[in-house]
Simulated scan of single mutants.
Amino acid sequence: MVNYLYDGTFEGLLTVIFEIYERKAAPAQIVHATAELPGLFTQTILVVTNEVKADRVWQGLGKKISATAQTHLYKAFLSEQPQIGMLIYQYAQLAFASTISIEDNFAADCVRELAHLNKQVFRESHRMEAFIRFQKTADDLYYATVAPDFNVLPIISKHFEKRYADQRWLIYDTKRHYGLYYDLEKVSQVNLEKEVTDRSGNLPADILAQQELLYQELWQTYYRHATIPERKNRKLHLRHIPLRYWKYLTEKQPSR
């Protein structure tokens, strides 16, 4: 039994799966290279990501499961759960060994657990698409910060690229310290040396566009006046907009 370490990328995990089959050495654990591993007598292998090997595994899976199932597998990976490496390896092992589709084989723990994680990640990505609010800076950049439960930026990128195709924007994940920047042509991953927002996700007033604070105040005023106190239903409201997402909403912030 071998502990396999990788760089935390999806391609890195696929490379690990390739190495497991090539070495014929079953994994004890498959974890990020920074993880602490117990046990003194288990061999540990650091696997370097290899795109060719990763692609061979991905193409091989494509012959065993549908494109939709592959997408779900990737979304489950974005959950970042500690056991995700082993779950995906077990799923791949099951798929490669089976002569029929395993996609609906929920009797298998790995299939059932990955389906559950896929749903959780999808729900979080949908909420990010709904609740992200941009602030306009003086140089016409629309900036938003998020700290989602799962690493959903890679799967919400297309939504914002299509919806805001005519403006530059940056969505920055303060939990994972990277963001997506759209320059009117393509989306690129960026890392900021210094994060510029406060704990509430607000940019400093001196770098905002001249009218941004006014627009925020107008929206907050509209929200307050559109609310009918007698018809408030906090329980229903929290069901649709859980409390942890309020920090993204302009209408929920105190006036500046």
Rank of each mutant, 00 (worst) to 15 (best):
18 F>Y: 04
226 A>Y: 14
226 A>F: 10
146 V>W: 12
219 W>K: 07
157 S>E: 13
75 K>D: 05
159 H>V: 09
159 H>T: 12
67 A>V: 12
230 E>F: 12
101 S>C: 03
77 F>W: 10
223 Y>W: 14
44 T>M: 09
214 L>R: 13
86 M>V: 14
189 Q>T: 13
256 R>S: 14
23 R>K: 03
117 L>R: 04
56 R>G: 00
66 S>N: 02
88 I>G: 12
46 L>S: 08
76 A>V: 10
173 D>T: 11
147 A>M: 14
152 V>R: 09
236 L>A: 12
114 L>Q: 01
136 K>N: 11
55 D>T: 10
242 P>N: 10
66 S>C: 07
120 Q>K: 15
147 A>Q: 15
209 A>R: 10
36 E>A: 01
229 P>Y: 08
179 G>M: 04
30 I>T: 06
148 P>C: 13
210 Q>I: 15
134 F>M: 02
112 R>N: 08
110 C>Y: 06
88 I>D: 00
229 P>T: 08
130 A>Y: 05
83 Q>V: 15
210 Q>D: 15
118 N>Q: 06
57 V>R: 00
225 H>S: 14
27 P>F: 07
100 I>T: 15
119 K>G: 12
220 Q>E: 05
206 D>Q: 13
118 N>A: 02
152 V>M: 13
253 Q>V: 12
74 Y>T: 10
204 P>G: 08
141 L>P: 14
185 E>V: 12
174 T>A: 05
90 Q>A: 14
25 A>H: 01
210 Q>E: 15
107 A>R: 13
236 L>W: 11
142 Y>N: 09
229 P>F: 05
28 A>L: 02
17 I>Y: 02
80 E>S: 15
159 H>Q: 07
206 D>L: 14
5 L>Q: 02
209 A>C: 07
221 T>R: 12
170 L>V: 03
18 F>W: 09
22 E>N: 01
18 F>G: 01
148 P>H: 12
225 H>P: 01
48 V>N: 03
162 K>W: 15
255 S>H: 03
49 T>W: 05
103 E>C: 10
73 L>M: 08
223 Y>Q: 04
173 D>W: 08
44 T>A: 03
72 H>R: 11
37 L>N: 00
24 K>F: 00
30 I>F: 00
220 Q>T: 10
117 L>E: 03
133 R>N: 06
216 Q>F: 06
91 Y>E: 04
99 T>N: 15
107 A>F: 10
81 Q>P: 03
205 A>Y: 11
21 Y>V: 00
74 Y>A: 12
85 G>A: 06
74 Y>N: 05
4 Y>I: 11
119 K>Y: 06
3 N>T: 15
112 R>V: 02
50 N>S: 06
227 T>L: 14
187 V>R: 05
212 E>G: 06
74 Y>L: 15
30 I>D: 01
134 F>P: 00
133 R>V: 08
69 A>T: 09
180 L>W: 01
136 K>I: 07
99 T>C: 13
151 N>V: 13
170 L>A: 04
243 L>S: 10
48 V>G: 05
106 F>I: 09
60 G>Q: 07
83 Q>I: 15
26 A>K: 01
241 I>H: 02
57 V>Y: 05
183 D>W: 05
171 I>P: 04
78 L>I: 08
131 F>W: 00
218 L>R: 11
94 L>F: 12
173 D>S: 01
239 R>Q: 08
191 N>I: 14
247 K>G: 06
134 F>E: 00
208 L>S: 06
87 L>I: 07
